[in-house]
Amino acid sequence: MKLLKIFLSIAVVGALSGCAHRINVAPELANIESLSHGFDNRSVSVGYYIPSELLSLEVTTPGGGGDNVRYFPYRDIETGYERVLSNVYSGVVKLRSTPDYSRTKQLGLDYVIQPQIVTSSGSTGFFTWPPTNFTVDLENSIRDESGTVIAAPRVVGVGTAETAERLSDHGVAGKRAMNDALSKMQAALLGLKLGAPSSNESTIKTKSPRSSSVASRLGDLNELKGKSLITEAEYEAKRKEILNSL
Rank of each mutant, 00 (worst) to 15 (best):
V12T: 03
A152S: 15
A164K: 13
S90C: 07
I77M: 14
E232R: 01
I142Q: 00
Y74V: 02
W129K: 01
A161C: 13
R42L: 10
L221Y: 00
L3R: 08
S123L: 08
L167M: 15
N133L: 12
T61L: 07
L29S: 08
R96V: 06
R143G: 02
L189Q: 12
S43E: 15
M178R: 04
E234C: 01
R96Y: 04
T231Y: 00
T104K: 08
A15V: 05
P131S: 08
E162F: 06
R75S: 14
I113H: 08
S211Q: 13
V214R: 05
V84P: 06
A215V: 11
G174S: 11
S36N: 14
E145K: 15
A237M: 08
G18D: 02
A151Y: 11
S86E: 15
K184C: 09
F39M: 14
A152W: 06
E232N: 00
L189A: 08
S121D: 04
P130W: 12
H21F: 14
I242D: 06
V149S: 03
L8R: 03
L109S: 04
T104Q: 15
S211K: 13
K238E: 11
P197I: 00
E145N: 15
A237L: 10
H170P: 13
K240H: 12
P99Y: 01
V12I: 13
D100Y: 03
E53C: 02
R22T: 14
P99I: 03
S34E: 14
K227F: 02
A196R: 09
S202N: 09
K227W: 03
N179Q: 15
I230Y: 01
S36P: 09
V92R: 04
R75A: 14
V158E: 14
G108D: 01
S199G: 09
V118F: 07
N31Y: 09
S123K: 07
I32T: 05
S212C: 01
V46A: 07
V149Y: 05
S202V: 11
N41A: 13
L3H: 09
R22D: 11
T231I: 01
A151F: 11
G219K: 05
S17L: 11
M185C: 06
G191P: 01
T148A: 15
D67S: 02
K225F: 09
S123G: 08
F7Q: 02
K225N: 00
V155F: 06
V172I: 15
S9T: 13
P27Y: 09
V155W: 06
G91N: 10
P51M: 00
N140K: 09
S17N: 00
P209L: 01
G157E: 09
L57W: 11
S141L: 05
A215K: 13
S183W: 09
R217F: 02
N87K: 07
S123R: 08
K184Y: 10
N244C: 07
L229V: 03
D76L: 04
V44T: 05
K175Y: 12
K5R: 08
A237Y: 04
T104R: 10
S208P: 03
K193F: 01
G63S: 11
A30R: 06
